[in-house]
Nucleic acid binder design. Structure first.
Lengths: 191, 191, 191, 191
DNA sequence: GATGAATGAGCGTTCATTCAT
DNA sequence: TATGAATGAACGCTCATTCAT
């Protein structure tokens, strides 16, 4: 129900849910465990969330928002396009790395049947600043005149793939390899 | 002699499982439904698969193998590198498009906790021909001298992302847009 | 505060279980029936007992304790040995007769594979007062200087056998036949 | 069905069943395992036994007969009563010891709900020679003029109890302790 | 007769959700 | 609001039995 009563409890529940989902997957997520992990009674969770489904969907939005705020922090869109893009790219990389768990969750559940379509839409809305930036890049003739969705996936996809590879032990991540990837990516999308 | 073990049943079960997983997600997968969909008794499924978990894991490998066979079909690795790469890239695109369901399943479960690590390893083994090809490309000075994992993600990632975007209604997929993406990708990884 | 854990439910469950086990045997015991018989939901049984096995084991201990308390009731161990022994013997006989069901259960499951070894040990502990008494009898030179276990089986065994015979319709049980058996038994173990 | 076809198979099935029952208890007995242990197919067991229940009941009778034959072997009922009784008592003791497993099974299932009443009756019939002997003892004025059932339980019960105690590690069994028990028992029932 | 794959009713157990306190 | 015991539908899996070969 109301989501303004005790914000601390909500965050506790979110953190517990995230932890448990990452540990045991969504299928293994039990409401009683979420509650226990958050030092709450089972019923309490149902005061803040209608049901399990609602909890998952809310958590998704919560994490999406948090991540976006983090990597847009301190970005000044009025700066030179190339600089903004570079800053955002590295910021996104670092935030994704530092919050692998959340990112894994976000990726894993974006296309799962748990997420309701309105949540997906809201989730896209959150990325609006990025879409705007890319459109500006195309308008300024800095990027290939390609669909923005494609551009975004070209920018973001490789980051995810590299971090995946890193966690599979396939690659190292350091200033050099990050730069290397950045060069590759830019080579691909620059006009 | 009793009835022989009928291995076509395994495929029946796989198809039913895939269908149901895609319809309702893994959490909604019920063994009884799998059996019914495959016109079998519940217990019969357990003759061929130890349990639900085993079924999912086996299905994953089955689809991975099938997909790989499909897009490597008719590829002659002795041909010119650029040609082989291009053929594979478009073959992979088309197979992924035509078997979106299987691909979605493969993507969705690769990193899920359902898959046991040995299945992941076996899954990688299946892609060996691709790794070999990329290494050849690097050796021949045709591709950036970058970690093969990164190269692969640069090649495959954008395809997945574009098809996702397509299913979200964000882009069209046709000869032109495919070519456009291919150019982008190649621009990115060519030496 | 939520409802308190209601420990009388445990006894309800015990009684239902005992009733059903005696009616249909252990193999025919169904958790759902236990719950229904106790006017509870299936799941409730699992709040108080880990699983079916645990239920059986706990029930065993419960009945063993209850029976022991009953036949030791009003016994004053400070009295003359012969009197204490006689009182206990007849008390045991009567309690076993009046609670044939429980006794049947106790006998039947003592050596069955359902009972875990720690339960068997705890079960022995319950009989400690009896062992002590017999040792006192030996020490006072009233009983054959034989292993206490043997003595006990000489005392208790015939009671069980007679009640069995009674339920098979082979013998009558009355003051006379009980006395007759008591004489036989005592003749056998007195020093 | 027919029980004369392949007697070897029947014995194989009996042995396998006994082994498995003793290992895992009756509740854990699976027809498929019985078959496997006997190197037969599941269906084969159903050629020789109507169902699981029938198998258990037949096994009971089989073992009861076998045990009785064993301990009556070489007994000449025409000999002096005291000698016959003593011989039988020790023979029963030894056979029970040497075939603890069978005996455990016989004891455990005699009163279980698995045994049908006609099997119990048939089982009693097998002990007829013993009843006859005891009646003779009473007639000859050698035994207390007590119901034969009681006498039997006085004779047989202690043996079972002692062997139980032995397996619980509570007592030693050797010529001396056996004799000791024999004296106790006889003291109890002699006229 | 022998085989063992197939069947499917049935049962133990779980867990999302409710509700008395 | 918070609690956590209670609920019971639902599901995974088993296993006695059948039956096609």
């Amino acid at each position: 129900m109301a989501r303004h009563r005790d914000y601390t409890k909500i965050e506790q529940i979110f953190e517990s849910t995230l932890k448990l989902v990452l540990e045991k997957g969504f299928a293994g997520l039990k409401m009683a465990e979420v509650a226990k992990e958050a030092n709450l009674a089972t019923g309490t969770v149902y005061i803040y969330f209608k049901d399990k489904d609602d909890l998952i969907n809310q958590l998704y939005l919560f994490l999406k928002r948090r991540k976006t705020i983090l990597f847009l922090q301190g970005i000044d869109q009025k700066e030179d396009f190339d600089i903004v893009l570079k800053k955002i790219w590295f910021a996104y990389f670092e935030v994704t790395m530092q919050h692998v768990n959340e990112s894994a969750f976000l990726e894993q559940y974006y296309r799962s049947p748990f997420l309701k379509s309105n949540v997906k839409e809201e989730s896209k809305q959150i990325l609006k600043p990025i879409y705007d930036l890319l459109e500006r890049g195309v308008a300024e003739g800095k990027l290939c005149a390609v669909n923005v969705e494609i551009l975004l996936s070209q920018i973001v996809g490789p980051i995810h793939e590299m971090i995946r590879a890193y966690h599979d032990g396939a690659v190292e991540i350091n200033a050099e390899s990050m730069n290397q990837l950045y060069q590759l990516v830019m080579k691909g999308i620059k006009a």
